[in-house]
């Protein structure tokens, strides 16, 4: 019990439960399977990007450029798919290769020239996005093939509500789940995953115990790019159009979700459970406000307050912990 109380995740979970109770008391259709499946589908995009950002934060870096990477991947995928056809697998393969390539560019600049990751990725965000917008002329892309449109509506599990409308667990949610399991295995059971925590905690020590820092960096930014590629395809699936400005500008929203989940910007800490709870908190908040008929312009006020309270609480608990440690040392 005491162990649970010390964890950030517990508090986020309690807040989600509290919000859910309040929202349900106002509008009973919040706590239905239909709404849940709906949220799980529409928040796959944020959820997948959040996993990538978590990896980068654990490794002690930060990535701002992933929104531009996702946009570029989405564009290349859309043009190739519409021009040459293909199937869902090739669409994902194309987008992910683009994502990995751009991620590797970030990693090389950060490592070889020793430039801080936030600065590198702010620069590459502008470069990727700028070049894309110039080359594409800022045009929107419509007219995906039929199979692409059908895939977006495919469900693993189909139910029918009282009004006769079908709903269910979307395939897109399964992709999110698969990535989540993969990420969990990497972080928990592989040397690679432990290396990320080690590097985030202290890069010099990690290098001395034998971790290849350059390889870890390459992996983490390539993985972020890979997930940005997948997220780009999912965004295209969800809205069925490709616009140059539909993703760029959301980078700090994703960062906020990960931070709400308790990941630290100093590296070496952060859990997938926390990150997913952070995404869930944002999903419940924004969906709940709509359900309670609160005008949507109140949304940022609530999210802002929650971020401030959450980071203040973490800071307070960190200081308490430090104080305890100093007291122990003094004895």
């Amino acid at each position: 019990m005491k162990k649970w109380l010390r964890r950030h995740e517990t508090y986020v979970f309690l807040v989600i439960v509290l919000f859910s109770i309040i929202i349900t008391s106002q509008n009973a259709s919040f706590l239905t399977l239909e709404n849940l499946f709906d949220l799980l589908k529409s928040y796959s995009f944020l959820g997948i990007l959040a996993i990538g950002v978590l990896f980068v934060l654990i490794s002690g870096g930060i990535d701002i450029s992933f929104t531009a990477v996702a946009t570029v991947a989405m564009y290349v995928m859309a043009i190739a798919t519409i021009q040459y056809g293909g199937n869902m697998l090739t669409a994902f393969l194309i987008a992910c290769s683009v994502g990995v390539a751009l991620g590797l560019i970030n990693a090389v600049i950060i490592y070889v020239f020793n430039i801080h990751s936030i600065i590198t990725t702010i620069a590459t965000l502008n470069i990727f996005y700028g070049v894309l917008t110039v080359l594409s002329g800022g045009k929107w892309i419509y007219g995906f093939p039929t199979w692409f449109r059908e895939f977006a509506d495919r469900r693993v599990l189909t139910l029918t509500n009282e009004a006769g409308v079908q709903y269910g667990l979307s395939t897109i949610t399964l992709i999110w789940l698969a990535i989540l399991i993969m990420a969990w295995v990497i972080l928990r059971y592989t040397t690679l995953g432990r290396g990320l925590y080690a590097m985030g905690g202290n890069p010099d020590s990690a290098a001395r115990v034998g971790f290849n820092i350059f390889r870890l960096q390459m992996f983490v930014y390539a993985f972020m790019g890979f997930l940005a590629g997948i997220a780009g395809v999912i965004q295209a699936l969800l809205v069925q159009t490709v616009a140059p400005n539909s993703i760029v500008g959301k980078e700090l929203d994703v960062l906020a979700a990960v931070v709400l989940g308790g990941a630290s910007l100093f590296g070496g800490t952060g859990t997938l459970l926390g990150t997913m709870l952070g995404v869930a908190l944002i999903a419940v908040m924004s969906n709940g406000l709509t359900m309670m008929r609160v005008p949507s312009f109140w949304y940022n006020v609530f999210i802002g307050l929650i971020i401030i309270i959450s980071v203040s609480a973490s800071a307070y608990r960190r200081r308490q912990r430090e104080r305890r440690m100093i007291a122990v040392e003094a004895e």
Binding site: V259, F297, N300, V301, G304, I307, I308, V311, A315
Partner: peptide, 16 residues
Amino acid sequence: VSPILATLGTMTLLNG
């Protein structure tokens, strides 16, 4: 609070 987190929060709040 670390500056990036504190100001990320106030940024969202003030925008709201």
